[in-house]
Simulated scan of single mutants.
Amino acid sequence: MSATLATTRIAHACQLIELGDLRILTDPWFTQTANYHQGEPLAAPVSSLGRLDAVVISHEHYDHCDLDALVAGGVDLDTPVIGPGTVTAIAKDKGFRNLHTIEAWESARIGDLTVTATPGKHGVHEVTFVIQAGGRSVFFGGDSLRIPELDRIPERFGPLDLTILPTNGLCLRPADLRQVVMDAEQAAELTAVLRPTLAVPHHYAFHSGRLGDRMITRGDQDPRHYADAVMRLAPDVEVRIVLPGVRVVVP
């Protein structure tokens, strides 16, 4: 019998994924700055998270790699941290001791948990992840762009139970609106390839503040655009738009 699979959205790309008894936190972000706002309520402080079996981090940007908040919140520094070398180097400097550096198509195994880095592309070096345990599989898309290499995931890993994809199509205004995150249509195209049982969008409420939104970033904050696109491109895939703090159990 397959393990229970559930996910709780903390905020932005920070998710608490439960695979049976295993609890995995993705891309932690618990604080804010003048130009980095979650744009939605934070579901829980670090101190209330409880035991974590692993922290999985796609890249080193502050809004995905808020390790200072984990340390300040009392997370055990022996908690495994999994990510590319750019992330594990930072984690080592913060005092984390159980580091697993993986790049695209490399895996880390921690007990019954297997985390495989899959390709990603962003403004800095990034990987995405397939997270597996108890006969269940999750694809976590961080805030990657839509790249062709991700189409290889089904042939390598088989059916997915859950995909968690960014959808805001974030663009950088000072760089002639260079896109650095997949948008709703591109995320739906990838969903149509991956064919999960359940698809959950994230990374859409973020904003850069009143001035930052005018001068630094532009993004789509409406996840319904993704749901509508999936309905056109992969109508058999269920999409769930999840508020922070809501625990969703995947069939």
Rank of each mutant, 00 (worst) to 15 (best):
I164W: 02
Q32F: 04
L233G: 01
D228G: 07
P201M: 08
N98A: 12
M215C: 08
F140A: 10
L52A: 11
L16W: 01
S107K: 06
P201I: 12
S2N: 11
Q38H: 15
G219F: 00
A117Y: 02
Q32G: 02
A72P: 02
L99I: 08
L243E: 11
T163E: 12
F30M: 14
F157P: 00
I90C: 03
G142K: 07
L170V: 04
S58R: 04
E60V: 10
L49E: 10
T4W: 03
V55G: 09
V75C: 01
H59L: 11
L243S: 14
S107N: 02
Y36G: 03
D66K: 10
A184E: 09
T33R: 05
D236S: 12
A108V: 08
A108N: 03
D93L: 06
Q38T: 11
G158A: 05
I24F: 02
R178W: 14
D151V: 05
H202K: 09
G50F: 11
L150M: 13
L150G: 03
L243F: 01
D183I: 01
G50P: 03
R136F: 01
V180Q: 00
N35T: 15
V250T: 14
I164Y: 00
G212T: 05
T114Q: 13
R109W: 09
K94A: 14
I82G: 06
W29L: 13
G50N: 06
L49W: 12
P45G: 15
I153T: 04
A43G: 11
V130E: 04
T197D: 10
D236E: 15
G169E: 01
F140P: 01
E40F: 02
I57M: 01
D183E: 11
L145K: 10
G20H: 04
A234Q: 06
T163M: 11
H125M: 05
D53L: 04
V55W: 02
A54Y: 09
R23N: 05
A54N: 07
L177C: 02
E103C: 07
L22C: 12
Q132P: 03
D112H: 03
P166V: 01
V87W: 05
Q221H: 15
L19M: 10
G135T: 12
C65Y: 06
Y226R: 03
T197H: 09
V193L: 11
D93W: 02
Y226D: 06
P119I: 02
D236T: 10
V81R: 03
V115E: 04
V242H: 03
H59P: 07
D63T: 09
F140M: 14
H100R: 06
A199G: 06
R152K: 00
G74C: 09
A117N: 08
P28N: 11
D53M: 05
V180P: 01
A89R: 14
S137T: 15
T217R: 07
A89Y: 06
A199C: 09
